[in-house]
Design a protein around this nucleic acid. Structure first.
Length: 767
DNA sequence: GGCTTAGA
C-alpha cells in the first residue's frame, strides 16, 4: 500500500488515537460531529483517558479505532476537547483484534470460526492483504464466492480513506479534494460517486460542473447522459445566482448557456453527438415537473430562490395591508418630538420630522437617502418616539428584569454596520443572522413556527440584504410589528442573489421617505459632487486635479502599498490620529490587497520599537498599539464581529496562568484577552474592506483604485468607498481603473421578479 | 471574490 502519500498523515503532528465510545451530536447537513473517545494512544501533552472530539467528520462506528489529528481546545461550556482537522480509521491490531473485527456485526455471515480461519491462512496482516488483492481470499478454505465478495466490499467501505484515495486518484482527483470527498461521504464515497458523480457539485465546495464532469467522464458517463444534462442545467442556474446575483434566469437564455457548457470541443469521443437544444429543454421541463427547478412563465428558478421571492413578497403584502392607528394626535406627536429635541440637544430638519412621523404611521416603510443625509439621526428619532408614544422603556435591563423580550429589534447585514447602529442609537443591535439565531447550514432558530418577539424592527444598510436572507427575516416576524428598512440603493448590493431594496423602491407599493438634504459634508464639498457624478455614471471633471478636500495620486498596482503608506504618513504628520484615517480596499488578496496594505500600514502607524512587545502568529505580527478588528462573534467575551480595538498589552506564556502567549485588546467598554490560539478572530484594521465599511464614516479615507481589483470594481463600490470620507478623500491608483469602475454598473442586469410580484399582488387592490 | 456564521 505504498500508493498513499505519507505526507497526508504526517506522524509528527499531534494526534490522538482511540476507540469511539458514543456519538454526542451529529449534524447531518454539515457533518459537525461531537463524539466521546476512549484514548488508546496520544502525543505527549495529552494524558486524558477520554476526550470529546469535535469537528467535521462523518458518523463513526462505535467501538472502532480511529486516529484524529488536531489540537486541544478549551470550550467555555464543555471544557477540554479535541478539535479535529482530519482523521482515519485504524486497522484492527493483533491476531485477536483482527478475528474480533472480522467476526463482528460489520461482516454478516462471518462468524468467529470463519474469521479465525482467515487469520490462520493470511496472518495478522489479513486485512491489508485482502484490500491489496481480494484474490488472496481464495486461499482461505471453505469460503464461498459470496462471502469473499462481501468481505472485500465491506472492508473497502470501512477502511475507506486509503482505498478511496487510490480510486479517486485514478479519476484524476488530487489529494486535498479526496480528503474533502472522504470527509463528506466517509465510507459511502465510492457509492455516491458511482451513483452520480455530479452530486459532488452540491455537496463539496470548490467543485463545479467542470470538475464533476471531468470525473464523470473519466468514470465513463456518456456525453448525452440525462444526468449530465440535468447537472449542467442545475449548476448553470446556481452559478447565475451565486456569481451574478440573479434570482431567476430566463429560460431562453438558460438553454444556449447550458448547451455551450455541454458541447466542449475536443471532449467528445468518437461516435458521440452534439447535444441539441431540444434535449436540454426536455430535461429542463422534467426537472421543473419534478420540482427540482421552478418554471414560472419563462422564468427559471432554483426552488430556494423562488420560495424566497414569493414568501418575502407575501409577507410584505401582509405588512403593507395592515392599518396602523397611531395612539396620539399630530399635535401630541410634535410635542413629544420637541421634548426629544430638547433632551438630545438637537434640532431635526423638517424633512427628518416628516420621516419620523411617517415611520410611526407605517407598518412597513423605507427610509432612503444618500450618504450624509442623516438616516442615522432619523433612526434614533424613530426609536425614541416609538418608545415615548407606546410607553415602552428603552432600557434593556428593565425587560431583562421582567423577563420580557426587548421590543426594539435593530439589525444590519454586516457586523460592522450593526456596530455603528448600536453606537448611534445606544441600543443593542445585531447582524440579521444573529437576531435570527443561525444554526448552521440554512437553519435558523426563528421562523413562522417560532416568530421573533418585538414591536419595532429597523434594518440598516438594507441594500446589502439578499433575497434569501430577507425572506428568512420576514417569515420570522410577528404580525403586529412595525418595520423600517433603511438604505441607499446606490450603495453596495447584496453579495447573494437579489436586489431587495431596489425592487421594493421601484415597485412603488411601499411607503418611502427619501432624505435629500446633506448634513454631513459641507454643501460645497467636492466629495459629494464627485459622488453624484459617479452615481450618475458620468465624470465631468479631471479627477487627477487636486481639490481642497481631495487628491488623486497616480500609481500602479505595484506602487499602491508604498503610495498609501506615504499618504498616511503625511496625514499623521499633519496631526491626524490613526483613528481618523481609514484605508479602504475591495479585496484581501494581491499586491494591493487589504492584507498587504495592513502589513505595510502597520509599519507606518505603529512601527516596531524597543519597548513594544510583539506576537508572531503564523505569517503576521501583532504589536502593542495596533488597531485591530474583531472578525467573529465571541459571546463569552462579549466582543462581536465589527468591534474595533487597540492592542494594549502582550503577555508571554510564562507570565500567564494558562502558560500560553496572550494578547490584550482594549475595546470601547472592555478589555479582552486572546490566547494565541484565538487570534484568528482578529485582524489588523488599518485597512478594511469596502463592504465592511458601509455604514461607517471617517475624517479621512484613502481609497486605492487599480486594475488588479478588476473583478470587484463597480460603480456602487466606488461610490460607497468615497462617500465614507467626511473631510478628506485621497484616491490613488490608475485613472483607467477608476473610469472602468464607473462604467461598470452592477444592478442593471440582476434578474429578479420581486418588483413585478409586488405590483401584481398589491396594486391590483385584491386583498 | 465581496458578506453572514453556532452547534452537545
Amino acid at each position: 500500500m505504498d500508493v498513499i502519500q505519507p505526507s497526508l498523515f504526517d506522524e509528527s503532528r499531534p494526534y490522538i488515537k482511540g476507540k469511539l465510545k458514543y456519538e454526542i451530536f451529529h449534524n447531518t447537513d454539515n457533518l459537525y460531529t461531537v463524539s466521546k473517545i476512549k484514548i488508546v494512544e496520544a502525543t505527549e501533552d495529552i494524558d486524558d483517558k477520554e476526550m470529546t472530539v469535535v469537528g467535521y467528520y462523518p458518523s463513526l462506528l462505535e467501538g472502532e479505532l480511529y486516529t484524529f489529528w488536531g489540537q486541544v481546545k478549551e470550550h467555555p461550556r464543555f471544557g477540554r476537547q479535541y478539535q479535529v482537522d482530519y482523521f482515519r480509521k485504524e486497522l484492527p491490531q493483533g491476531r485477536e483484534g483482527v478475528i474480533q473485527y472480522l467476526s463482528s456485526d460489520l461482516f454478516p455471515g462471518i462468524g468467529e470460526k470463519t474469521a479465525t480461519r482467515i487469520v490462520d491462512t493470511l496472518g495478522e496482516k489479513a486485512i491489508t492483504l485482502i484490500l491489496e488483492n481480494p484474490d488472496v481470499l481464495q486461499q482461505v478454505p471453505r469460503l464461498s464466492e459470496e462471502q469473499r465478495q462481501l468481505m472485500y466490499r465491506r472492508l473497502l467501505e470501512y477502511q475507506g480513506l486509503e482505498q478511496i484515495m487510490v480510486k479517486l486518484g485514478e479519476y484524476g482527483i488530487g489529494l486535498s479534494l479526496s480528503i474533502q470527498i472522504y470527509q463528506t461521504y466517509a465510507e459511502r464515497a465510492m457509492q455516491v460517486l458511482e451513483d452520480n458523480p455530479y452530486q459532488l457539485i452540491e455537496d463539496i465546495e470548490g467543485i463545479g460542473f467542470k470538475r464533476a464532469d471531468a470525473i464523470a467522464r473519466a468514470m465513463g458517463i456518456r456525453y448525452d447522459a440525462p444526468e449530465r444534462i440535468r447537472a449542467a442545467c442545475h449548476y448553470f442556474l446556481w452559478e447565475q445566482a451565486e456569481q451574478n446575483g440573479h434570482v431567476y434566469y430566463p429560460l431562453e437564455l438558460v438553454i444556449p448557456g447550458v448547451q455551450k457548457w455541454l458541447n466542449k470541443q475536443g471532449e467528445m469521443e468518437s461516435g458521440e453527438q452534439e447535444i441539441d437544444q431540444g434535449r436540454i429543454e426536455q430535461q429542463l421541463l422534467e426537472l421543473a415537473e419534478e420540482g427540482k427547478l421552478i418554471l414560472e412563465d419563462d422564468r427559471l428558478y432554483l426552488p430556494s430562490l423562488f420560495f424566497a421571492e414569493k414568501g418575502f413578497a407575501k409577507k410584505v403584502k401582509q405588512l403593507v395591508k395592515r392599518r396602523v392607528e397611531l395612539p396620539v394626535s399630530h399635535d401630541q406627536f410634535l410635542r413629544a418630538l420637541g421634548e426629544l429635541e430638547d433632551r438630545l440637544g438637537i434640532q431635526y430638519a423638517e424633512s427628518q420630522k416628516q420621516a419620523i412621523e411617517q415611520a410611526l404611521h407605517s407598518s412597513l416603510m423605507i427610509l432612503t437617502g444618500g450618504p450624509g443625509t442623516g438616516k442615522t439621526t432619523v433612526i434614533k428619532g424613530i426609536v425614541e418616539l416609538f418608545a415615548a408614544i407606546y410607553d415602552l422603556p428603552l432600557d434593556p435591563n428593565v425587560y431583562a428584569q421582567r423577563e420580557e423580550p426587548f421590543p426594539f429589534l435593530l439589525v444590519a447585514p454586516t457586523g460592522r454596520a450593526a456596530k455603528r447602529m448600536e453606537e448611534s442609537t445606544g441600543l443593542p443591535a445585531f447582524t440579521i443572522h444573529r437576531l435570527l439565531g443561525w444554526k448552521g447550514g440554512q437553519e435558523f432558530d426563528y421562523s413562522e413556527d417560532r416568530p421573533l418577539e418585538g414591536k419595532l424592527l429597523i434594518v440598516d444598510e438594507t441594500s446589502m440584504m439578499d433575497q434569501w436572507l430577507a425572506n428568512q427575516l420576514f417569515r420570522a416576524l410577528p404580525d403586529d410589528i412595525h418595520v423600517i428598512l433603511v438604505g441607499d440603493q446606490d450603495q453596495l448590493p447584496s453579495v447573494g442573489p437579489g436586489q431587495v431594496l431596489r425592487d421594493l423602491l421601484d415597485s412603488g407599493q411601499i411607503p418611502v421617505v427619501e432624505l435629500k438634504d446633506v448634513f454631513r459634508q459641507a454643501q460645497d464639498s467636492s466629495i459629494i459632487s464627485l459622488a453624484h457624478q459617479i452615481k450618475n455614471g458620468r465624470l465631468q471633471e479631471d479627477i487627477t486635479q487636486p481639490k481642497p478636500d481631495r487628491r488623486f495620486f497616480p500609481c500602479s498596482s505595484d506602487q499602491v502599498v508604498d503610495v498609501v503608506s506615504r499618504v498616511c504618513q503625511s496625514a499623521l504628520n499633519k496631526g491626524y490620529t490613526p483613528k481618523d484615517i481609514q484605508v479602504l480596499a475591495p479585496m484581501y488578496r494581491g499586491k494591493a490587497g487589504i492584507d498587504a496594505l495592513n502589513e505595510a500600514l502597520q509599519q507606518t502607524f505603529n512601527p516596531p520599537a524597543e519597548h513594544k512587545r510583539e506576537l508572531k502568529v503564523k505569517d503576521h505580527i501583532f504589536r502593542v498599539g495596533d488597531k485591530v478588528l474583531q472578525l467573529v462573534n465571541n459571546l463569552e467575551q462579549h466582543v462581536f464581529n465589527g468591534d474595533i480595538g487597540e492592542v494594549t498589552a502582550i503577555l508571554l506564556a510564562q507570565e500567564t496562568k494558562e502558560q500560553e502567549d496572550q494578547l490584550v485588546v482594549a475595546f470601547e467598554h472592555k478589555e479582552v484577552r486572546y490566547k494565541k490560539s484565538e487570534l484568528h478572530q482578529l485582524t489588523l484594521a488599518y485597512c478594511c474592506s469596502i463592504h465592511k465599511s458601509q455604514g461607517s464614516e471617517y475624517p479621512i479615507v484613502v481609497v486605492p483604485v487599480v486594475k488588479s481589483y478588476q473583478r470587484m470594481l463597480r460603480r456602487n463600490l466606488l461610490y460607497t468607498a468615497i462617500t465614507r470620507g467626511k473631510e478628506y478623500l485621497i484616491l490613488c491608483g490608475e485613472k483607467d481603473a477608476f473610469d472602468a469602475a464607473i462604467d461598470r454598473e452592477e444592478a442593471a442586469i440582476r434578474y429578479t421578479h420581486l418588483k413585478e410580484t409586488l405590483q401584481e399582488w398589491l396594486a391590483g387592490n385584491h386583498s
